[in-house]
């Protein structure tokens, strides 16, 4: 009898399920960070041992410490290259957003436009950029413009297709309501279609962020020429010719980190824009 009372007094609203749920949540919170770091540490350790125990020379496979020290010692070169690649990437992303959203709006405003041009947007998308890039550099004089065009070609389609889908997925009852209230085209676009499309657009944007980096890197490979204003991809090529393998790895790591940062940044923006109302940004209990 008294035991039962003690129990209820100690934790009135916490049952076994709740305790299990809390444990699971705590594990989730910690594991999300600890486990990947653990995997990384193990991989680095294995890499290091592999190199040391087998006596692999650094021009074939450098150990992690050598890569890390190269990253530091070559930082001035690599950082300049990073800035160039980043600049192309972000400009391409910006143009992809403007072009993708602009075309999507045009398509939803005019069936004619959509019927005429949508197939070509698909064709541009499915043709590998590596195959188009050499042509682009033949006809486009400015290197920057060429790089930008390549990166844009890769990045704009997800923005276009997602935004088009979003603009067309406004609730049909709300559409009727807008018609009943005599809304103009512009009002419907501004107050109904664009907000409905926002989550779709942001999904496309996150994909486009990664793709514009890929586009920029691929374009640099194809463009090939070096000198001042060359980006990370060119530094990788160049280091490869000189068998400077540690620098190749260092540049590769920088590209990967850049991709992750772009993705995380866009995810954060997306979360901030949607957190008040969209399902994807809501925390659910249980």
């Amino acid at each position: 009898m008294s035991i039962v009372e003690d129990n209820t007094a100690a934790a009135p609203d916490v049952d076994e399920d709740e305790l299990r749920r809390r444990r699971a949540r705590k594990f989730e919170r910690i594991g999300k960070w600890v486990l990947p770091v653990l995997v990384m540490a193990l991989a680095l350790f294995a890499w290091d041992r592999l190199v040391v125990w087998n006596g692999i020379p650094h021009y074939i496979l450098p150990g992690p410490w050598l890569v890390f020290s190269t990253l530091i010692s070559d930082w001035p070169i690599l950082f300049d290259a990073l800035l160039v690649t980043l600049q192309i990437t972000l400009m391409a992303l910006a143009v992809a957003v403007i072009g993708g959203v602009g075309l999507a709006v045009l398509f939803t405003q005019s069936r004619w436009m959509e019927m005429s041009f949508y197939p070509y947007a698909v064709i541009l998308q499915v043709t590998p950029v590596v195959a188009i890039a050499p042509l682009i550099f033949i006809y486009v004089d400015s290197r920057i413009a060429g790089l930008l065009l390549c990166a844009w070609l890769v990045a704009f389609f997800p923005v276009l297709s997602n935004t088009t889908l979003g603009l067309n997925s406004a609730d049909h009852n709300l559409r009727d309501l807008f018609r009943i209230y005599g809304a103009t085209r512009w009002q419907r676009l501004r107050y109904l279609q664009l907000p409905s499309a926002l989550p779709y657009f942001l999904g496309g944007l996150r994909i486009a962020g990664g793709l514009s980096l890929i586009g920029a890197v691929v374009a640099e490979y194809v463009a090939g020429t070096g000198g001042i204003g060359s980006g990370l991809a060119f530094r990788i090529l160049e280091a490869g010719y000189r068998l400077n393998i540690p620098r190749m790895f260092a540049a590769l790591i920088l590209i990967a980190v850049t991709g992750v940062v772009i993705f995380a940044g866009l995810s954060f923006i997306s979360h901030m824009l949607l957190r008040k109302w969209h399902e994807s940004a809501l925390k659910r209990e249980g």
Binding site: L177, F178, Y181, G182, Y191
Partner: peptide, 21 residues
């Protein structure tokens, strides 16, 4: 269905018919 705009607050939703005018 209530057919409200999920991105707008309650007051903004009620504003809609006026806003469209």
């Amino acid at each position: 269905e209530p057919t409200l705009m999920p991105w707008a607050t309650v007051a903004q939703n009620v504003w809609l018919p006026f806003r469209l005018r």
